[in-house]
Structures are given as structure tokens and as C-alpha cells.
Design a protein around this nucleic acid. Structure first.
Lengths: 194, 194, 194, 194
DNA sequence: AGTTAAACGAGACGGTACGTCAGGTCTTCGC
DNA sequence: GCGAAGACCTGACGTACCGTCTCGTTTAACT
């Protein structure tokens, strides 16, 4: 089965599949989402899906990447005040996890990610990395400005900011509110500041 | 067909199911684990599983709770030095996530947890809470000893310690080593110290 | 996959499948008959069909055998006059092939028979043999009565009577009427008579 | 999209398709023969097959007609001795059905013929009729020579000769040997002779 | 000790979705 | 504009498990 020729790919079919997948996700939930349903909704043969994707996980990932990249490049505001900027990004991240609609999507992808290493890599590099890198860049600027200790590993700093959110989201150990976001930023700043 | 009588439950069957589940998990991976396979391996009728559990997720959860509880009550050392004690617990947690065998189990439970709220609660309360509470207790002691700021929310403090590990584990963004554990503790201590 | 235990077989499901198959056959034609449709019509899972039969051919065969056996044992009249008796059986056979309903069934089975040796054997032994043997018995009686030459091979005699019908049916080279049946009997008798 | 212009037809493609079909037939058996496989083997697009033929049945038929007509016009020997001449043709027909290679082809065509009336006509007229007519001609000569009763319907006579062979072949009720052919001729002659 | 009702093993059942295969149509090139 | 190549939609294939439902067969509590 020689890989199919991407040059001959039907763009309409591709779009229809991605749209159908994104549309079905909140309706049925990820666990009950089936390739068959995506194909039906998209008006596409199942084979057309299996020709271009490895399964529903890959479809969802592509759909999300598409949706995110369509939103344009990620960039953090740099008001000069690190606290303000971090509050903005952490608040919006917390809100994203709190939103049941968006959260469903994240949940879907996380499940698939846990079961498929190749997919996990893709999700990390194509979806999350740009987000995380943007934060990292802002922190680097803060480092140059003397608001973050020079010896801090910025990757760890990013994880310090977002890891607790994942923890609370996965374990449902507390509310995901703006207040929570703010106090999280305070803790993180305390850890990073000179 | 009301709830079956737990008094008449066959202990041997229960054990066989839990053992079979735990045994199959690393062999097939969680996604490919089936109730049918568990029943076959356990030499048990499928109905016996469905009589006592809601599905494979519930079986796995029970199996893990059993395994953990067998290990005895959780308690953190209190050497008086907070840094030392936290290093110990964070190192061991990181090691647990790094171990591919144990990690598979965690992965399994996380997947099920993401797809089933009731199960998530159970997992949180019966499996994780004891762990987290132990750490929280140690931090409270530190607070009394003046090593942790009084106004710090200890739940958040715990999340600050373990959240980054989840982040790194889920996203595979870096190595899970003792060094990493130590520097994580440093960051956290910086955040918590007066 | 050790053969399933026939003792546990569900008779209702068996009947439903056979009835559905027989009912669908004239509606869709054999070529367009699908296992899926049989299962749906019978209100049965596909697996239940595949558990007990090798495919649609085997189902149809069973259905026909059942239908034929239900009609009771085959026996030719023996009026003493061989010509009369043969005319009766040949006429009815010709009529059977002429009838588009019955013919569809025969056609179905013949197709499957041509593509599956094991099925061919079954069809021959369970469906046709009784018919042919009955004729053979009648011819043997004629032989004893001196109406058929002693040295004639009775199997060949039977083939001489029915072979031409198959020929005309397969090749559609002429009408299948009572007149045809009668003149066929005349030819055959001329061949067999002393 | 009316019928394509036969003038522009690519002869090489036509030949390749027919050869591929004939070559694949004994390898895969008729039931498992696919248009896709024929196209692949012939190095031809599927559409090229569907443009010129209605399906695999039509391809096979054309291939066989081609093969037979290539062998030149059919003619029966007329040695003056009807028995001798019939033995020759019946023996060769029996041998043809006995040969597993040739038989596969006949089987293929018979299946298709049973499922497609239009094809059945074509097969009868273009493939079989010449054969049967040749025998009929020889019988007519015998009739003129007084070896066959005048009132015998020659079409039926032909069927009397070949029908039993079909019967035995379809039902696998006995061997297809020269001896069988000879005794079949004897029976037929007994039926036809004055 | 004998009775009886439940849990048990086994596995057939009606279903749903899987991932594959081929059918027949449509589209894109190159000649 | 035919022909090659092959992607497309369709729909059946045969398989794997689901969770439910009988079946006898233990097994353990109550006569």
C-alpha cells in the first residue's frame, strides 16, 4: 500500500472531514465519537478517512491544529509588567479548561495522546508548543529585565505556571477561576523573582 | 434484579479478576484491554465482572486501590528539614512517572478518569487524596515551623509541587529525573518560603 | 475458535435466519442478497449467522433443505405404467424450472454450488439425491418389469431424463413446457426400452 | 457521455485486458476475480475496462469468444458413421468438462450466465451455438442417411447428448471419462435410431 | 442433612463499530 | 480526447467486544 499521492487529494473532502469531526465532538463526546459517524456527517467514504488518517485521534488533532493555526500566530502581550502579562495568559488558560465545551476537546485529545505516542508528539509540537513558547519568550524578556532570576530554567518556569492547572483539571481538586489564576501567578512569581 | 448480595460474593473470583486485570494491563495496554480478556484470564464468566463492576475502568481502579492500600498507610518522613522531605517525595513521584510499567497504569487510570466523572471522583478520593494529604500535612508542619509563608494555600502548594510533573509527563516535554525533581523542589521552596 | 456448542443454539434465531433468507431471496435476487440484510430481516446479530454458517450460501442451502424436508419424503407414483410415471415427474421438474420463483432459488444454489465444492456436495446429497434416487427406484422397478433394458446404467438413465432440462434451462435454448417434457420422456424411453 | 468512439479504441489495451482476464481466471478462481486485479495485471486504468465492458462477466465472455474464434470455425467430422463422429465430439466435450483448467472457465461463465440474462444470451449465441449447430448439422445428415428417425427434433437430440454431461458436471454425480462418453452416445443413439 | 436461592462458569445472543475490500464513477494528467 | 492512474463515495465484508441473557453447576445459608 504505497502512500497515496497528496497532490491528488480532494480538498473538499479534507475540509468536510475536519469540520464534521469538530462538529460531532461536542455532540457525542470523544469516547462515543466514531469514524463511521464522521464519515457519514462529512458525506465521505470511510476509506477516504482511513486513506489519509490513522484513526479518529489523528483526525481530531488535525482539526484542532487547523482551527488553532487559523486563529493566527500566538503572541503574548508585553506591557512591561510581567505580573500583568502572566495574569492575562494564565487567566485565559484557566478559563479554557473551565469552559466545558473547550474542555471536552482538550479531554479528547489528552485521551488519545495517552494511548498513542506518535500522536502525543504531534499534539505537543503542533498544538501546544507555540503556546508554551510564547510564554517562554515573555519570561525570557522578563529575565533580561531582571524580573526573573537568571539561573531559572525557563521550561521549568512554564511548567510551574501551567502544570498546576493540569493537575487541578485532571483531578478536579478545586475550582478553575480567575482568582485561582491570579494566586497561581503570585506563587509562580514568588518562585521566579530574584 | 436489585443489587447483588455482597455477603455471598466469591472472594476467589474477586481476586482472580483484579489480578488478571493488573496482569493484562502492561501486556496489552489500557486501550486494548477488554472485559472479555479479563474474564478469560481470570477464568470467570463475564457476568461475574458486570455483576460487581461497571466496566473495565472500575475494575482497574479497584485493583489499583487494592494494590496501594496493601502497601500500608502513606506517611511522609518529617526530618525537620522541609527541603529534604520534599525532595524525597518528589523524587519518588517523578520516578514513578518515569517507570514505564507504573506509568502504564497511571496512564490507564487517567484515560478512564477523563472519560468518566464518577470514576474520576473515586480515583481522586481513594487513590490520590491520601498521597496528597500526606504532603499537605508535611507542608502544614513546615508552615508552623515558619518555613512556609502563613498565607499560602496549601492545596495550591501541593499542586505547585506535583502539577509540573503531570505537565511534563503528559506532554513529554523533558526528562523525569532526580535532578529535575530537585530543581522542582527548589522552585517550589522559593515560592513558598517567607 | 472451537466449534460452538449446538446444544446451546437458539432455535428461534435459527428459524428467523432461515425464514429471512428464504423471504429475501425472491425480493433481491441471489447476487444482491447479503448476510447483513438477512441478519437485519431476521432481527439477529451478524455474528449469530457467522457462528453457525459459513456464509450466505450455506444459509440458503439449509433453508432449502429444511423447506424440502418439511414437505415430507419423496416418492414417485408407481402406476405400473412407466411412461405415465415418468411423464408426471418430468413434467413437474420442467414446471419447477419454468417457474420464475422456484427457478430463482435453484439459480441461487447453482451459483453457490459452482463456487464452493463443499457446498456442492451438501446440495447434491441433501437436496437432489433423494429426488434422483426416487426416479432411479422407479426405473429399477421398470427394469424388473422388462420395460427398461437390463444392461442400462440407471444413474445414466436418470441423467438422460434430467440432463436435457438443465441444458435447456442454463442455455435458455427453448421453452420449458409440458409438451417438451412429454417428448423428452419419449426420447428417453426409446433409449431405455428393450 | 454517449458510447465512446470505437474508432479511437486502443487495441493494445483491449488485448492486455483480455489476456489478463484469461490469465487470472485459473489463478484466483472466478468468484475472487476482480476488475481491479484485471486492470492492475493489464497495466490499464479501471475506467478503461468500464468504458468498454459492463463488468468482469463481459470481459471474460469476450476473452473466451476471442479464444474460441481464434481456433477457427467449428466443424464436425463426417466419416459417414454417426456413432464414430458422435463419440469423437462427445468424448472431447466430456474431456473439456473434466479438465480442471478449462472447467474453471466454463464454471466462471456459467455463474455469470446465471446472474445476467443479457450475458447469457451472448454466451449462448456467440460461444455455444456454433458448437451445438455443428452437432445438429451432423445429426441432420444422419437423419437424411436414415440413421436418425425423421420425426426427432434435432434440438432435443443435441440436448440429449450434452444435457447429461452438464448434469453430471454440475452435480458431480459421477466420473467424466471416455467410457462415460461412449455409453452416453450408445444411449443417445438408441433413442434416435429408427 | 436437605433444601433452596444466589452466585458462579460458560457462552450464545442482538448490537455497534471496526478496518478492509471491491464496485463503479469522477478527476487529473500526459500523450 | 483517449488512456493511465488513482482518489472518490458506497456498501458489504467478516471480526471483535459490548453488555444482557439464559443455561446448568457449585456453594453456602437456612431450615
Amino acid at each position: 500500500m504505497p502512500t497515496p499521492d497528496p497532490g491528488r487529494r480532494n480538498e473538499r473532502a479534507r475540509r468536510a472531514v475536519l469540520d464534521a469531526a469538530l462538529g460531532l465532538l461536542p455532540e457525542t463526546g470523544y469516547a462515543d465519537l466514531t469514524v463511521e459517524a464522521i464519515a457519514a456527517r462529512a458525506g465521505v467514504g470511510k476509506q477516504t478517512i482511513y486513506r489519509w488518517w490513522r484513526g479518529k485521534g489523528a483526525v481530531i488533532l488535525d482539526a484542532l491544529v487547523e482551527a488553532v493555526t487559523a486563529a493566527g500566530p500566538v503572541a503574548l502581550p508585553d506591557t512591561g509588567d510581567l505580573r500583568t502579562d502572566l495574569r492575562a495568559v494564565v487567566r485565559s488558560t484557566v478559563a479554557e479548561f473551565a469552559d466545558s465545551q473547550l474542555s471536552a476537546t482538550t479531554r479528547a485529545l489528552t485521551i488519545e495522546t495517552l494511548a498513542d505516542d506518535a500522536l502525543a508528539e504531534q499534539a505537543r509540537d503542533r498544538l501546544l508548543r507555540p503556546q508554551l513558547d510564547a510564554v517562554k519568550d515573555r519570561l525570557r524578556a522578563g529575565q533580561h529585565a531582571g524580573q526573573v532570576r537568571a539561573e531559572v530554567d525557563l521550561d521549568q518556569a512554564v511548567e510551574l505556571l501551567f502544570g498546576p492547572i493540569y493537575h487541578r483539571w485532571l483531578l478536579r481538586t478545586g475550582p478553575l477561576t480567575d482568582d485561582y489564576a491570579d494566586s497561581l501567578v503570585e506563587l509562580a512569581l514568588a518562585a521566579l523573582a530574584p
